[in-house]
Amino acid sequence: MSAARWYATEASASTSGLRLSFVLPHQTIYKGVEVQQVNIAATSGDMGILASHVPSIEQLRPGVVEVIENANTTKKFFVSGGFAIINPNSSLDINAVEAFPLEDFSPEAIRANLAEAQRTATSGSSEEERNIARVEVEVLESLQSALGSK
């Protein structure tokens, strides 16, 4: 290894777009599909990823992954958490445990589950139960705000 440093080289001209792979343990949503931009909710903050992005690994919050396929098509998924790996060659790998299009969620179920989780978070019988409920409240509040801004 030489001590010289280089700037990250740009992706070759043949791969001008961002290649997205978005996989769940039970399903492949995108497999090396060229897209324009992907917006993710990382634990370090919300970020938009375009081609030739600086390589990075980001932990995903329970939140929305927005895939801008082209100027006309944008798809929004709610993911329960996972990782996004931004590779040096303009490819992006997103791994999540669960991901669903926003229209698959039931606002009534979210409201009911949120009320239940909030109740357990404050008056659950054990500390463990309350901690679990606090995580659920966080997820459901994020889900609710995601649906609200659809």
Binding site: P62, F78, V79, S80, G81, G82, V97, E98, F100, D104, F105, S106, A109, I110, N113, A117, I132, V135, E136, V139, L140, L143
Partner: peptide, 18 residues
């Protein structure tokens, strides 16, 4: 943590998908 999050997400789905 991811297990709890995934479960909360599944339980918030519409009947059919849930």
């Amino acid at each position: 943590y991811t297990q709890i999050c995934a479960r909360a997400v599944r339980n918030a789905l519409k009947e059919e998908q849930r």
